[in-house]
């Protein structure tokens, strides 16, 4: 399968355009890196691809077809700050199972501890929460993962753990990844192909 972004343009207001004719494509079982400075509009592009923003020009398609917005969205965005993506009044068990019920094996792969499930989000660290938000996004209906600076706030040891588990799972299940980061060293290691944001954004 192929996720295709074609000629996407977007501006929050008339004065400042953020994206102009951006095109890229990600195929299943590949990891594509996207590098660019913060504040350059990478996150906006991520939100457009994952269906969070709809009033853009251009098209985002999977195998040439528009992505239906009614049901589970097959392109899932993982955010930089996992604590903001969790309802503070929910225990982690409910947070994890909101999207689907992951297998014990998958939980083990990501090093999820059983006693974390009875905690509130505020009681866990960013690294622990990010593991939850990744597993949540790995619903079998997910075809593509957009990872927007998912390890920027984490320490190097956790960064390796998270990326290895994520990439292994995605390769085995034919899920494509768009990895967005400002860290070229990281992308060099994890990606099959790297795009430079300033090259694809025709501003």
């Amino acid at each position: 399968m192929e996720l295709k972004v074609e000629n996407v343009s977007f501006s929050y207001n008339k004065k400042r355009q953020i994206l102009k004719d951006v095109s890229l494509s990600v195929s299943s079982n590949s990891v594509v890196g996207l590098i660019g400075d913060s504040g350059s509009g990478k996150s906006t592009l991520c939100k457009i691809i994952a269906g969070y923003i709809s009033n853009y020009k251009g098209s985002v398609t999977i195998d040439g077809e528009k992505i239906p917005d009614k049901d589970y969205y097959p392109v899932q965005l993982i955010f930089q700050h996992p604590e903001k993506t969790m309802n503070p009044k929910w225990k982690m068990k409910k947070v994890l199972n909101e999207s689907w019920t992951p297998s014990q094996e998958l939980k083990d792969t990501f090093g999820l501890k059983e006693n974390w499930l009875n905690r509130w989000p505020s009681e866990l660290s960013g690294g622990e929460l990010q593991r939850f938000s990744i597993i949540r996004a790995l619903n079998p209906k997910t075809k593509f993962i957009i990872a927007d600076e998912i390890s920027t706030m984490l320490d190097a040891v956790t960064q390796v753990q998270i990326w290895q588990s994520l990439i292994n799972h995605c390769k085995a299940n034919n899920i494509g990844i768009l990895a967005v980061s400002h860290d070229i060293d990281l992308l060099n290691i994890i990606c099959d192909d790297i795009l430079y944001f300033k090259d694809i954004n025709n501003l």
């Binding site: 009614k70 589970y72 969205y73 899932q76 965005l77 955010f79 903001k84 969790m86 909101e98």
Partner: peptide
């Protein structure tokens, strides 16, 4: 909030 937006994308 991000958790509600995300919930929509989970098809809720």
């Amino acid at each position: 909030s991000e958790y509600v937006l995300l919930s929509r994308k989970f098809g809720k």
